[in-house]
Amino acid sequence: MLLVVVALMGALTLSVGAATAQPAASSTPPAAADVQPGPGNDGLVVGHGPRPSTEDILAKVRRVQPRTPTDKLCTGWWLHPVSNVNFQRGLGGTLAWAFKLTGAAQDQLGWLVDVSMPYAAVNDRAINPPYQSHVLWSWYNFHGSLNNYQLLGGGNGTIATGDKVTLLWAIEGVSGSWAYRYTTCQVPAPGSA
């Protein structure tokens, strides 16, 4: 069960202001009033109905992702109507994240969701996504990390300070609603939160 959405389905969208990266002071995201979606920090929740194919949403992300500036570091809270993502980079170099669906998204998606990552990239090159599908309750803290990676088509790498990382999450709810969320940001120095 994988779901994605296209930003052109305006009538059914959940909308709020725009998303910004903020320092993580706690495990609780800042107030929803600070939400500012925009380049590198986007997503959508829609109601029931036909959903676009994974290929269609990946085509949209692949068009946007190479043009997304990397001046925003993968640190702190990244707020959005779909989910709030908290990034931290450990002293050993691993980039970790916490992915928490917002209350509004939980209301639309229902109590049980399937969260997966159909696409990820480092420096605009697709990698084997570092997150496998998890079916859990919608208020769960979906978390993961990235350090060593495998390039699609062959080759391996390790993230480095300054690398551009794109992560795309896809969410399908027991209600029949679906959503997607992606971030593109620059890997900070080890020890950044």
Results as ranks from 00 to 15, higher is better:
21 A>D: 07
29 P>G: 03
156 N>C: 04
123 N>P: 03
35 V>N: 03
53 S>I: 13
133 S>F: 00
39 P>Q: 04
64 V>F: 10
88 Q>T: 12
81 P>K: 04
74 C>P: 01
57 I>P: 00
48 H>A: 11
51 R>M: 06
80 H>F: 02
81 P>T: 07
121 A>H: 00
55 E>C: 02
43 G>C: 05
10 G>E: 13
69 P>W: 03
115 V>F: 01
119 Y>L: 13
16 V>I: 05
148 N>A: 14
126 A>E: 15
93 G>L: 15
61 V>L: 11
176 G>I: 06
93 G>V: 09
28 T>L: 15
146 L>A: 09
121 A>L: 14
143 H>A: 15
160 A>R: 15
22 Q>D: 05
133 S>N: 07
60 K>A: 11
69 P>C: 10
72 K>V: 12
156 N>E: 10
111 W>M: 05
73 L>N: 11
115 V>W: 00
103 G>I: 07
18 A>L: 03
108 Q>N: 15
4 V>M: 13
171 I>Q: 00
65 Q>I: 04
30 P>L: 04
16 V>E: 10
36 Q>I: 06
159 I>Y: 01
74 C>W: 06
15 S>C: 02
21 A>C: 15
189 A>H: 14
13 T>H: 10
25 A>V: 12
82 V>Y: 00
120 A>M: 00
110 G>R: 10
95 L>A: 10
87 F>R: 09
49 G>W: 02
80 H>Q: 13
108 Q>W: 10
83 S>Y: 02
21 A>K: 07
83 S>K: 06
130 P>S: 10
56 D>E: 14
26 S>N: 10
141 N>L: 04
146 L>G: 03
98 A>V: 14
24 A>T: 09
2 L>G: 10
150 Q>G: 02
55 E>V: 08
138 S>M: 05
125 R>N: 11
65 Q>F: 03
29 P>K: 06
160 A>E: 14
14 L>G: 04
131 Y>C: 01
149 Y>L: 12
94 T>W: 09
6 V>P: 05
119 Y>H: 06
78 W>P: 09
